[in-house]
Amino acid sequence: MKIRSLLLAAVAVLPLLAACSGGKSDKGGADRPITLGFSQVGAESEWRTANTRSIKAAAKAAGIRLKFSDAQQKQENQIKALRSFIAQRVDVIAFSPVVESGWETVLREAKAAGIPVIVTDRAVDVTDDSLYTTLIGSDFVEEGRRAARWLIDDMKDRKGPINIVELQGTVGSAPAIDRQKGFHEVIDADPRFKVIRSQSGDFTRAKGKEVMEAFLKAEGKNIDVLYAHNDDMAIGAIQAIEEAGLQPGKDITVVSIDGVKGAFQAMMAGKLNATVECNPLIGPQLMDIVKKVHAGQTVPKRIIVNESVFDRSQAAAAFPSRQY
């Protein structure tokens, strides 16, 4: 009820506002800047911060008015933000979903209001594909596969069993689900490897460290490999490994995903073995698509960002050009 009355109020006020700004009320008005409502997950990692910066900078450069909302890693905040964007009648909504499921209702509301929705970075799980226009972002399953392939290649001369501990991301989030899936797809085919422990570190350093400490106590020297769903957890876990008197990167091979600056520093110090890049600098690409979508052009349903894998031999060379 509340939302409906808000909507009504917004609709009632809109023509007035438009009249003030020169009487251009139809959507395609060329001299009226496009308004983009963007709902971000939060600021849980360096990666996310770079993602936010890129989007803000690109919006400014493209002359798009950006309404930015930080969900602080809570789905209810994000749904609230999307509803307020709908009430404010923004031209395009973009959001990076905290978790995969539970978006049907709010996306239906956006569709009913005629506002195109772009999903960035993480996928949503909806039965009706037409609820969003396009998904721009990385392929997390592929990232998981790449991490596994790098590991198999790195360990090709080693005999089994090779014990892996896994630090998962936030339970239920797309990157956590997909990075686990992709990794297992590849690694399970090689009988030498075995994932002996898997626990959530919530994508944060503090949790990554805490969980790794417990793994080390429980498994001791059995751990050969640490696979972390993001660099920050790996950075936290590296501290735990050092405090246990082991050498990260040597006694325990560490591979993680994202490619943040901290990971490159850790690689240069020899503590991290490899990181699979997950490019957060999608701002310019996103703004392009926002413009296209707003102009009514068709865009592909899935747009993938360019990415690669870095290991220690490339770290020092690549470090200066890293932006996040």
Binding site: G42, E44, Q72, Q73, D202, R205, A206, G236
Partner: peptide, 14 residues
């Protein structure tokens, strides 16, 4: 103590 332990400060999660 928390910021010293993880060598960083995370305003959102700490």
């Amino acid at each position: 103590i928390v910021s010293s332990n993880v060598k960083s400060a995370d305003a959102n999660n700490a």
